[in-house]
């Protein structure tokens, strides 16, 4: 199918783009790798597109001291290949091996990916584990929302219609932070059936600051606070991990779909989580 007709705006300055968003009919076009398929199927019929691809100075991945900052126009491919990410966030690199394909990553942006908030998307889980800060800008100013408050439901986020996600700021993890990431999907590059991501620290042989998130198994990517509190203060142990995973598998609320049943998704949580935690322990130190 073909997209419905729309008005096209291609502002050259951020202020002009934000002013255009004041109109309720406007929708941002970033990499188009989620929005255009939806328009081709007429699942989305925006009457006006505000193409942000020509806005200057938003295509950065930069070291900002304690954090790495990623601009609205940083493409997946650029983030994937960046030294800053390789050095400070190996968990993002591991996840990128599972995200789309090179031609899609060449255009798609990380910020657009987060705003789209597909329930089976990887980065919403990773950003919650890393507690990334999202700068939401509008004509009347800017606010910062932490990733754990950003994702509200299936394709639903805290962003308002007149706001644009202009920057992502991710604090560099404390030295010694370990991480783990596992996914099962039909094929690499497809949306996840189940993704589990975690970071933790070890302090005198005990787990500290455990952060665990899943995606693909709930309405949106979520942190599992019960799992985290069961891990904190405990010595790493296979039985502990199995118990935490078993409880998490019961706590999530997956739906059946044509490809995969809810029960199978729970099984994936149960199976992948101990591996992720074990990998996190092994890489901590």
């Amino acid at each position: 199918m073909k997209p419905a007709a729309f008005e096209y705006e291609c502002p050259q300055q951020l202020d002009a783009a934000l002013a255009l968003l004041n109109d309720a009919n406007s929708r941002i076009l970033a990499g188009g790798q989620s929005l255009v398929p939806m328009m081709n199927f007429r699942l989305a019929t925006p009457s006006r597109l505000v193409d942000i691809n020509k806005l200057p100075d938003l295509d950065y991945v930069r070291d900002a001291g304690d954090a790495v900052e990623i601009g609205a126009l940083a493409r997946h491919a650029q983030v994937y290949a960046s030294n800053e990410v390789a050095q400070h966030f190996p968990i993002m690199k591991a996840a990128y091996e599972w995200i789309a394909h090179s031609a899609v990553r060449n255009r798609g942006t990380l910020c657009g990916n987060l705003c789209h908030a597909d329930p089976a998307s990887e980065m919403p889980a990773i950003m919650q584990v890393l507690e990334a800060q999202l700068t939401l800008s509008s004509a009347s100013g800017a606010r910062v929302v932490v990733a754990t408050d950003f994702f509200k439901g299936s394709y639903e986020t805290a962003i308002a219609a007149d706001e644009m996600l202009t920057m992502l700021s991710i604090s560099k993890p404390a030295p010694g932070t370990g991480w783990g990431f596992e996914e099962v999907a039909m094929r690499k590059g497809d949306y996840a059936w189940c993704t589990v991501a975690a970071t933790l620290q070890l302090s005198s042989g005990k787990i500290a600051s455990a952060r665990v998130a899943v995606s693909g198994v709930d309405a949106c990517a979520t942190r599992l606070s019960d799992a985290e509190s069961s891990l904190d203060g405990q010595a790493p142990d296979t039985e502990l991990f199995a118990n935490v995973a078993a409880s998490a598998a019961l706590a999530v609320d997956p739906a059946d779909n044509v490809a995969v049943s809810a029960d199978y998704r729970r099984d994936l949580v149960r199976t992948l989580m101990p591996r992720v935690l074990q990998a996190a322990v092994e890489s901590a130190g």
Binding site: Y8, G32, V36, A103, V104, R107
Partner: peptide
């Protein structure tokens, strides 16, 4: 390399 079905000509 990009998907030409996911870009508008106007872009």
């Amino acid at each position: 390399a990009v998907r030409s079905c996911l870009m508008f000509a106007v872009q």
